[in-house]
């Protein structure tokens, strides 16, 4: 089946997990600055927040271990589909997936939903190339697919994702471990400008391989945004800079 077009104009969107489950039309953000809205990760079954310590800061960034809490796809469709239909920009629904069967089940329910312009499938850090390809292919409908790959294995997995039909690959935040004052070290995802250099390098490597890549990781200024596009990123995803509330202003066009 031919895929719909997902035009990212301007070539910038929030990363999954950065702005909630739907674009807040009464909030502080000017949606004309974004080319698409990516939802928080949604799983087939509901997920609860991670136990224990979830947030640790370090110079230049922070570690977040949230557990991707969400109400599950069925509940999410009941609660958020209406907001998606009112979105002034295409909604890309991010799916947390473990198997092609799960992808097929979930993607099928998104086809034809007003406002939904694409699907981003979030693959686990231990996903095999075969699993990646299977999951991309399982999104068999019209919705274009972005494959969000584990940062550390993006170069290994990206070719299979694109061969299988993904319109682009995006990058999950890199994973790390931070010491914590009490309760031992905390594992989680890393955010903040300190990861920008390794993110730029990875995107450059992927672009050199001819792979359409949505760049992300540590983008905090207009210069960072331009740098990501100048090395060939198809588009850019921003995350924690948006939590500065005024942070998105640094991404405004001149």
């Amino acid at each position: 089946m031919a895929k719909l077009d997902l035009t990212l104009d301007p070539p910038i969107m929030n990363a999954a997990g950065a702005l909630g489950f739907f674009p807040d039309l009464h909030g502080p953000l000017d949606w004309s600055h974004f080319g698409a809205f990516v939802t928080n990760p949604l799983s087939l079954a509901p997920r609860t927040p991670a136990r224990g310590k979830r947030f640790v800061t370090y110079p230049g960034g922070f570690l977040l271990h949230s557990g991707y809490p969400n109400p599950g796809l069925s509940q999410a469709l009941r609660r958020f589909a209406r907001q998606w239909s009112r979105s002034p920009l295409p909604v890309v629904v991010h799916l947390l997936v473990r198997s092609p069967d799960e992808v097929a089940q979930m993607a099928r329910r998104l086809e034809g939903l007003e406002g939904v312009g694409g699907v981003e499938i979030g693959l686990t850090s231990d996903a095999s190339p075969e699993l990646v390809a299977g999951c991309v292919q399982a999104c068999g409908g019209e919705l274009p697919v972005i494959a969000r790959l584990p940062f550390e294995r993006a170069i290994e997995l990206a070719p299979r994702a694109i061969q299988a039909g993904a319109m682009a690959v995006s990058l999950a935040p890199p994973r790390g471990i931070c010491p914590a004052e009490a309760g031992g070290p905390v594992q989680g995802r890393l955010y903040g400008p300190a990861i920008l250099p390794i993110a730029l390098r990875l995107v450059q490597e992927l672009v050199k391989l001819g792979l359409p890549t949505i760049g992300s990781g540590g983008i905090y200024t207009h210069e960072h945004y331009n740098a990501m596009l100048s090395i060939g990123a198809l588009a850019v995803q921003v995350d924690s800079v948006l939590w500065k509330w005024s942070g998105y202003r640094v991404l405004e066009r001149a």
Binding site: G17, A18, L19, G20, F21, G27, N40, P49, A50, R54, F55, F62, L64, S66, G67, Y68, P69, S240, L242, W243, W245
Partner: peptide
């Protein structure tokens, strides 16, 4: 960390 913007769960 998200101050209500993202429902990040932290």
């Amino acid at each position: 960390p998200c101050a209500g913007l993202a429902r990040c769960g932290a």
